[in-house]
C-alpha cells in the first residue's frame, strides 16, 4: 500500500503489450478496460495484483494485464486463487472467468469459494455460450437455444449464478454490463474493496456466436433499489427480476477466511519432540 501512495497509477499502467485475440466487438474488451480502470482507481501497484483464470475467452485476460497472472486449467481458477491469497494475503487477487469455466466445469469450486469467503474478487463474463469451442450452450444458456451440439436446445433450466452465490455465502454480489465500462469499473472498485469473496457477474455479449446479445445494451437498466445486506431479500429480488438489473445487489458482513500465516511460534526442531520416546 505504501507503493500506491507514492505513485499515482494510470489505467494504462495495468495493461500489457499483448494484443488480445478476442473477436472485435466482444464485450470482454470492455471488461478489460473496466478492470484496469478499477485498479487505477484503487491505486494498487500492478505488481501487487494477481489475475487468475481458467480456460475460455474470458480467461485470456491475465496476459492482457500488466499484473501477475495465471492462466491455468479449465474450471479451477478459484481454487488456485484461494491458495495464492491464503499464502499471500498482501496481494490483491482477481479471478476472471466465464459462464462455462465458472459455472459448469468449475461449478463445485464456485460453491465452495462462496462458502470459504477468501478476500478476492470473482469476475465472470457471462455470454451464455462457449465461444472458444465454436458456440455450445453453457449453464446460463436459454433452454431452446439451438446449436450443433444440442440441436433444438438443451431443454435445461439455466443456472442462476447470483442466487447460487448468495445461497453459498458470497459476501458481495453484483451484476454489471460490459457495455457500461464506467459503471462496471465503479462496481469492481467496490467489489475489490469489500472484504471477503465478491462475485461480479458481467453480462458480456458474444458477437460471433450470440449476435442477438448485441441487443443487451437496450435491455439493461440500473437496479431500482438500494443494495441490501439481507441475503434472502437479495435472492428474492434477483429471482424475480428480468435478468438485466444492474448494480450492487448484496453486501454482506461475514469476516473473510484468512488463517494466520508467516508467524512461527516454534522451531522446526521442536516438532521432533513428539516423536522422541
Amino acid at each position: 500500500m505504501s507503493k500506491a501512495q507514492a505513485v499515482a497509477y494510470k489505467q494504462g499502467d495495468y495493461k500489457s503489450k499483448v494484443k488480445p485475440i478476442w473477436c472485435p466487438g466482444c464485450g470482454d474488451y470492455h471488461v478489460l478496460i473496466s478492470i484496469t480502470r478499477a485498479l487505477a482507481e484503487i491505486g494498487v501497484a500492478p505488481e501487487d495484483v494477481a489475475v487468475i483464470s481458467g480456460i475460455g475467452c474470458s480467461s485470456r485476460i491475465p496476459a492482457y494485464t500488466n499484473c501477475y497472472g495465471f492462466h491455468g486449467v479449465h474450471g479451477r481458477s478459484l481454487a488456485l486463487a484461494a491458495g495464492l491469497k491464503v499464502a499471500r494475503p498482501d496481494l490483491t487477487v482477481l479471478i476472471t472467468s466465464g459462464d462455462g469455466d465458472g459455472f459448469s466445469i468449475g461449478g463445485n469450486h464456485f460453491l465452495h469459494a462462496c462458502r470459504r469467503n477468501v478476500d478476492m474478487t470473482y469476475i465472470v463474463m457471462d455470454n451464455r455460450v462457449y465461444g472458444m469451442t465454436k458456440g455450445q450452450p453453457s449453464p446460463t444458456t436459454e433452454p431452446d437455444w439451438d446449436s450443433a451440439l444440442s440441436p433444438g436446445g438443451t431443454g435445461l433450466r439455466p443456472f442462476h449464478p447470483l442466487v447460487i452465490a448468495l445461497a453459498s455465502g458470497a459476501n458481495f454480489v453484483a451484476r454489471t454490463f460490459s457495455g457500461d465500462p464506467n459503471g462496471t469499473a465503479r462496481v469492481l472498485v467496490e467489489a475489490i474493496r469489500h472484504p471477503g469473496f465478491s462475485f461480479v457477474e458481467i453480462l458480456s455479449p458474444c458477437v460471433t456466436f450470440r449476435p442477438d446479445e448485441k441487443e443487451w445494451k437496450n435491455m439493461v437498466h440500473t437496479a431500482p433499489v438500494e443494495p441490501t445486506d439481507d441475503a434472502a431479500r437479495a435472492a428474492r429480488r434477483i429471482m424475480t427480476d428480468d435478468g438485466f438489473n444492474l448494480g450492487v445487489l448484496y453486501r454482506g458482513h461475514r469476516a473473510p477466511y484468512q488463517p494466520e500465516i508467516g508467524t512461527a511460534s516454534v522451531d522446526v526442531a521442536d516438532l521432533e519432540e513428539a516423536f522422541l520416546l
Binding site: Q11, P24, G25, C26, G27, Y29, H30, I33, R37, A38, A40, E41, G43, S178, G179, D180, P181, N182, G183, A185, R186, V189, P205, V207, K214, K217
Partner: peptide, 19 residues
C-alpha cells in the same frame, strides 16, 4: 482518478463503443 471524472455516459465521451 478514473472514478472522479464526471462523465454522463457509460464511457469517456470520445471513446468509440467497442461493441
Amino acid at each position: 482518478k478514473p472514478g472522479e471524472f464526471r462523465w454522463a455516459g457509460p464511457d469517456s465521451p470520445e471513446a468509440v463503443d467497442l461493441g
